[in-house]
Design a protein around this nucleic acid. Structure first.
Length: 241
DNA sequence: AACCGCGTCAACCGCCTTGGT
DNA sequence: AACCAAGGCGGTTGACGCGGT
């Protein structure tokens, strides 16, 4: 049964057929990822490039895990969400084989409900001040060069952490299924947060994620398992925006 | 059997960032 | 510095399936 719709420009929408999946997979296996805008035409697909990219990234890419999110993974998602907010791609980056879309869906359909039923309202991150956005015109060519260098450094850091900080070691920190020693666990999380995740955090601006008045009062507030937490020391690194 | 309500999740959309020129 | 194309991200939508009535 053909369900996908045909748009005015001849592009299809809706669920992907097996044939389309095969076309996309075969093309990418032969030519690699990228050039998404021109890919559909070259691959013989009547889809927009974005749709192809999404299909590949979320479902066809090798190594994708589907469903059966374990307790450890769930726990890690909750903890990472407490740290990062709705930065699904960052969270997904810490869960091998999981996609941002799946985690986002899982959060919205399972975890939110679960947390709310436990009397937890997990949305403080939205209320935190956002870091000032870097204006495109900042520094002109020099600023551009700076951004490039900075990105390279962060990428290198990420590469390092992906090799040294395994999922298991991260997930084993606390377990949401054990609610008995909440305070102790929060303290544990608080103590390691800014230290264990350097590639995700970088001090961009003293006002971001900080409450209190002057520098001496600076504390980073974040949310872990329904509890507002603050770093015991002035954080040196914050989520890169 | 038919209908309804709800939950799930694949897919889409709009916006933003990045990088090249 | 400005413009543009491409890629990426997060919010939202809507089709589908399932259980209850």
């Amino acid at each position: 049964m053909e369900i996908a719709l045909l748009l005015e420009g001849g592009l299809r929408r809706g669920p992907w057929s097996t044939k389309e999946d095969n076309l996309l997979t075969n093309y990418i296996q032969q030519h690699g990822e990228g050039q998404w805008r021109s890919l559909p035409k070259k691959a013989g697909l009547l889809r927009c490039g974005k749709s192809c990219r999404l299909r590949w990234m979320n479902y066809l890419r090798p190594g994708i895990k589907r469903g059966n999110i374990s307790e450890d993974e769930e726990d890690l998602i909750v903890r990472l969400h407490g740290l990062l907010g709705n930065r699904w791609s960052l969270i997904a980056g810490r869960l091998p084989g999981r996609t941002d879309n799946e985690i986002k869906n899982y959060w919205n359909t399972h975890l939110l409900k679960k947390l709310k039923s436990a009397g937890i309202n997990p949305k403080p991150h939205k209320d935190l001040p956002k870091p000032p956005k870097v204006k495109k015109s900042d520094g002109g060519a020099a600023g551009k060069k700076q951004r490039k260098q900075k990105k390279a450094v962060v990428a290198a850091d990420n590469e390092k952490i992906s090799k040294t900080s395994s999922y298991d070691s991260l997930a084993s920190g606390t377990s949401s299924s054990d609610g008995g020693e909440a305070a102790e666990k929060v303290a544990e999380v608080v103590s390691y947060v800014p230290v264990e995740w350097p590639p995700l955090f970088e001090l961009e601006d003293a006002n971001y994620g900080v409450c209190g008045g002057g520098a001496a009062e600076r504390r980073m507030i974040f949310w872990v398992a329904g509890i507002f937490c603050r770093c015991s020391t002035t954080p040196t690194r914050y989520p890169v925006m």
